[in-house]
């Protein structure tokens, strides 16, 4: 049953990828990549069950955090034009 779920998640990821490639605005891409990231977190969790080694979950945790930090960093750059404490 987990491989079916993995397949469904891959379909969802493909949809998000198409939106990320098409754009048209930069915000569409950020949103699509954020959604894609959520699906990746879920897919890694499911894949752990497919291979019967659920210890892969730590990777899901790392991803859930990195996805968020990446999104916020990109938005900060676009909105303010710098990443640190400012120019």
């Amino acid at each position: 049953m987990f491989d079916v779920t993995a397949a469904i998640l891959l379909v969802g990821m493909a949809f998000a990828l198409v939106r990320a490639v098409l754009g048209p605005t930069i915000y569409d891409r950020i949103l699509a990549i954020n959604v894609h990231g959520t699906k990746t977190v879920l897919l890694i969790a499911v894949l752990g069950f497919v291979t019967e080694r659920p210890d892969f979950l730590d990777l899901s945790l790392v991803y859930a955090l990195i996805n968020f930090i990446g999104t916020i960093a990109v938005l900060k750059l676009i909105k303010y034009g710098y990443l640190g404490d400012g120019p």
């Binding site: 779920t5 469904i8 998640l9 969802g12 949809f15 998000a16 949103l31 699509a32 959604v35 699906k39």
Partner: peptide, 17 residues
């Protein structure tokens, strides 16, 4: 649960498009 979740994931992707 898994199929339900998969349904919403695909619905989200379709909506995104």
């Amino acid at each position: 649960l898994l199929l339900g979740g998969g349904f919403f994931v695909v619905a989200g992707g379709a909506g995104l498009l």
